[in-house]
Design a protein around this nucleic acid. Structure first.
Length: 479
RNA sequence: GGCGCGGUACCCAAGUGGUAAGGGAGAGGUCUGCAAAACCUUUAUGCGUGGGUUCGAUUCCCACCCGCGCCUCCA
């Protein structure tokens, strides 16, 4: 096993990773703001943190991973008001959609899913602490954080406060602030807005306070890992540091990991460009959840990922190749014994796989190790030299691969049902397929290839692929 | 302007101071009744451009060009 190395935004370097408490990792991920369906760019980041958590677990670390759902912010308040419902009611639909999306992408549930609006009290406690420590000031019913008081401000995103002037690009806002970069911890309610009555006043929390309060509640004052999209580094994560460290005097996060953004056909994804996709958009076009997960996971997280439909098709083929091998390993009968050298090949592949992921989650390198092995093993099988005794080790390697990548199981149809799509196999049951396969076999036996090919074509049109094996049997699978 | 990613074959993409992983796609072949799957061969004397350092650079240094992100809500 290789030393795990992770890129820390704080230092700007790839560093050896060691949790504060040996064997246990406390990790926080900024989840979605549930004002709408999440898009594939969001899921690039969520798949990244999923790969990270799965890899840490594979390496035997115990995880305590917290992901929040931001269910109160300006957009939610505005949208809920427009829809004439409460914010809880408004957000619930998108929370459920997000959970369903995560299931289709095989994103594991973190140990804790938490909502901002369930933690108002914790935020209030934290704000009071900041008041005690004199990092705040009140203005027109709101409470602001005075960033000049926090010496380390800017250490994460490397922003230079001296160079920032309030002016053209810095909105002085509708609130009264001492300095343009000061941010709201607590916002006075505007007429008609949803508000909470608390010891620090009537209103609602600012955007950043929820993550500081909840992260420390569940993970303690110092977390091992905090992840999010690169755009969150500033100001969100910078402000989280300011809030948390000003309250505790301790380092808030030891390793900050940020995923680069996804582009679509080389351009920023945006609704105005018409290149904005949710998972539902892609599944409606017939792409599989596993293909999307593979496409999102195969490009290392610190590299911008250029999403294209061609790329998604390529991912589909890659997953297919891996699944074909998995099926072959499982279904083919090999002679007893062991093939000399196979154990060594598995060991090398596993080592290279681990080396890739250990090196700041180099998924491309890890995948290369898997594909190399698949080719080698296929070759040995084709030569008839693979042995039954080799199956377990090969299967274990693939199993470990899939504990991280989670694309091998052929369950895309079921996943699509979770999200409300019928799936591609439209009604053809196993029995019916077997019956047609038997018909075709009979035709082949009497060398009536026209009839045989007709059946094969019919099945193909209905999403079933047939493969004739060497021993005269037929294997079928759903497209 | 400041900070940060990146420019490697038709597409995606790894990588190293010593002569270019892997996947997809294409072409040819093996196998097959034919396919499919799988395997084999093949597709970058070349890694944005121009200099420099070096015995040797895609890899280090300098300059420049191009794409993208953040600096304002944003994964």
């Amino acid at each position: 096993m290789h030393q795990i190395q992770l890129h820390n935004t704080l230092s700007g370097k790839v560093e050896p990773f060691a949790p504060l408490r040996p064997g246990h990792v406390g990790m926080y991920t900024c989840g979605p703001t549930v004002y709408d369906y999440a898009h594939i760019g969001n899921y690039r980041t969520f798949v990244f943190q999923d790969i990270l958590r799965r890899f840490l677990k594979l390496r035997g670390l115990k995880l305590n991973h917290v992901m929040n759902l931001t269910d109160v912010d300006d957009r939610i308040i505005a949208n809920a008001a427009a829809a004439g419902v409460g914010i809880r009611e408004y957000t619930e639909k998108f929370v459920q959609a997000f959970f369903a999306d995560c299931r289709t992408l095989s994103i594991e549930s973190p140990e804790h899913w938490i909502r901002a609006t369930d933690h108002i009290d914790d935020m209030v406690v934290l704000i009071r602490k900041l008041q005690e420590n004199t990092y705040t000031y009140a203005s027109e019913g709101s409470i602001y954080y005075r960033i000049t008081k926090f010496r380390d401000y800017g250490k994460l995103s490397k922003v230079d406060l001296s160079g920032i002037q309030a002016g053209a690009r810095v909105d002085n806002d509708r609130y009264e602030k001492e300095s343009a970069r000061d941010f709201a911890l607590w916002k006075a309610p505007k007429p008609g807005e949803h508000f909470w009555e608390t010891p620090i006043g009537v209103g609602r929390p600012g955007w950043h306070i929820e993550c500081s309060a909840m992260a420390m509640k569940y993970l303690g004052e110092t977390l091992d890992i905090h992840t999010g999209g690169i755009d969150l580094a500033f100001p969100h994560h910078e402000n989280e540091i300011a809030q948390s460290e000003a309250a505790t005097g301790k380092q808030f996060v030891r390793y900050w990991l940020h995923a680069e953004h996804l582009l679509v056909e080389g351009e920023k994804m945006s609704k105005s460009l018409g290149n904005f996709f949710t998972l539902r958009d892609l599944f409606a076009k017939g792409y599989k959840p596993s293909a999307l997960r593979f496409a999102l996971a195969s490009v290392p997280y610190r590299r911008q990922l250029n999403f294209t439909f061609d790329g998604l098709q390529q991912a589909t083929s890659s997953v297919e190749r891996l699944r074909n091998f998995t099926a072959r390993l499982k279904n083919e009968k090999f002679p007893a014994g062991n093939q000399p050298g196979m154990a060594e090949r598995v060991k090398n592949a596993a080592d290279e796989f681990d080396a890739g992921l250990s090196d700041d989650l180099n998924t491309a390198q890890a995948l290369a190790a898997v594909f190399d092995f698949v080719r080698e093993a296929n070759t040995v099988m084709d030569k008839g030299e693979f042995r039954q005794g080799d199956v377990a080790a090969a299967a274990e390697f693939l199993g470990n691969f899939d504990k991280v990548f989670a694309v091998l199981e052929d369950n895309d149809g079921e996943k699509l049902k979770v999200i409300g799509f019928g799936g591609g196999d439209a009604g053809l049951g196993d029995a019916e397929i077997e019956k047609l396969v038997a018909e075709r076999q009979a035709a082949r036996a009497r060398r009536d290839f026209a009839a045989s090919d007709r059946v094969r074509k019919e099945l193909l049109d209905r999403g079933i692929i047939l493969e004739d094996t060497k021993d005269g049997k037929v294997r079928w699978k759903r497209k």
